[in-house]
Amino acid sequence: MAGAGRGCQKIRGSQIRDVLDTKHSVLFDCDGVIWNGEKAVAGATEVVSLLKKQGKNVFFVTNNCTRPRENYVQKFSRLGFTDVAQEEIFSSAYCSAVYLRDVAKVQGKVFVIGGHGVYKELREAGVPFVEGEADDPGMTIVDCPLDSDIKAVLVGYDDKLTFLKLAKACCYLQNDDCLFLATDPDPWHPLREGRVTPGSGSLTAALETATGRKATVIGKPSCFMFECIASQFGVDPTNSLMVGDRLETDILFGANCGMDTMLTLTGVSTLEEAQAYKDDQAPEKKIYVPDYVVDTIADFLPVIEDNE
């Protein structure tokens, strides 16, 4: 059973080899695992390339909805990854578009709190949407026009959020038949020099408070992102490994989907936080405990180079 015991075991060398030998697919989070900002994690390009050469399926699952997948391909290339294909990248923006098109089959328009990444993926999926366009500066929710054909509200990261956008979304969500979706639940994102920015989860929480409704989350830790991968590539969770840096999203996502999980310490969560979840007496906290911990995915290198 995937995750049996969830031991928070710090592993290296032959222990990493033993784990990888049982896995056909490896899923990586991006921010904090593959790169930090515009700098690849040391050894990450070699790890991805060698895993692929050894016949592993490699996928990238990110809650960052600010870029369309084609821009992610460009970033991978810019940072030295030479063999990452667009179809291997599953972002919360892309998966939200897939959900609206193939699962919800929304018949009408989507009101979007978000940005370019969400817009581009919805457009490519053929999902009609309203961009939360700029209104006249003096306009308020009392006198602004509302679209009568809005059938869903999708909330993602929006660094140009206005009060009027939130108010419009609240009005649309008064209709119980209007879907309420969030690209991801991330509360904040780290920036340079210790600064942070509110994430999609913060914006979603504002709407949940205002409307008394709960959003359906598309990205991690929801399983829908894995369902997209499984439906396109036939991936089995029992022989898959989820590698991430955030306990409450990446590790919980892997556990929810039945995968073994590995925390890498190059991003948000720490070994001490993982250990605290393990030591907590509350059973519901155990699902945040990773099966394995490595300092960095560069720890894979000696193992997979030996197998060449």
Score class of each variant (00 low, 15 high):
Val130Trp: 13
Leu241Arg: 05
Gly234Lys: 05
Thr204His: 05
Gly80His: 09
Val294Thr: 09
Ser222Pro: 06
Pro145His: 08
Val289Cys: 04
Asp291Lys: 00
Asp147Lys: 12
Leu100Gln: 05
His24Gly: 07
Asp295Lys: 11
Glu88Val: 00
Ser92Arg: 02
Phe76Gly: 04
Tyr157Met: 13
Gly37Pro: 06
Asp149Gln: 10
Pro187Thr: 11
Leu301Glu: 10
Tyr277Cys: 11
Thr22Val: 10
Val48Gly: 02
Thr264Ala: 04
Arg246Ser: 00
Lys105Pro: 07
Tyr172Arg: 05
Val84Ala: 11
Val142Trp: 09
Val130Arg: 15
Pro198Met: 05
Ala298Val: 02
Cys171Gln: 15
Ala205Arg: 03
His116Glu: 15
Leu179Met: 04
Asp136Ser: 10
Leu79Trp: 05
Gly115Lys: 06
Asn64Val: 01
Ala93Phe: 10
Asn71Pro: 13
Cys95Gln: 01
Thr238Trp: 07
Leu181Gln: 08
Ala169Ile: 06
Thr82Tyr: 07
Val268Ala: 09
Val110Asp: 08
Glu308Asn: 12
Glu227Gln: 15
Glu88Cys: 04
Cys65Thr: 11
Ala85Arg: 15
Asp21Ile: 11
Ala282Cys: 12
Pro198Tyr: 10
Val243Gln: 01
Ala274Gln: 04
Leu252Asn: 07
Val33Thr: 00
Glu272His: 12
Phe60Asp: 01
Ala274Glu: 03
Cys8Gln: 04
Tyr277Gln: 04
Ser148Lys: 12
Thr66Lys: 09
Met225Ile: 14
Thr211Val: 08
Ala2Asp: 12
Tyr157Leu: 13
Asp291Gln: 04
Cys65Glu: 13
Gly32Gln: 07
Leu50Phe: 00
Lys23Asn: 01
Leu122Phe: 03
Pro290Gln: 09
Ile304Asp: 03
Thr82Ala: 12
Leu20Glu: 02
Leu50Pro: 01
Phe163Ile: 14
Glu193Tyr: 12
Gly5Thr: 03
Gly55Ile: 00
Leu50Arg: 01
Tyr99Pro: 08
Leu203Ile: 13
Asp31Cys: 09
Ala182Asn: 00
Asp159Cys: 13
Ser14Asp: 13
Gly212Pro: 03
Gly219Arg: 06
Phe90Cys: 12
Thr66Ile: 15
Arg67Ile: 07
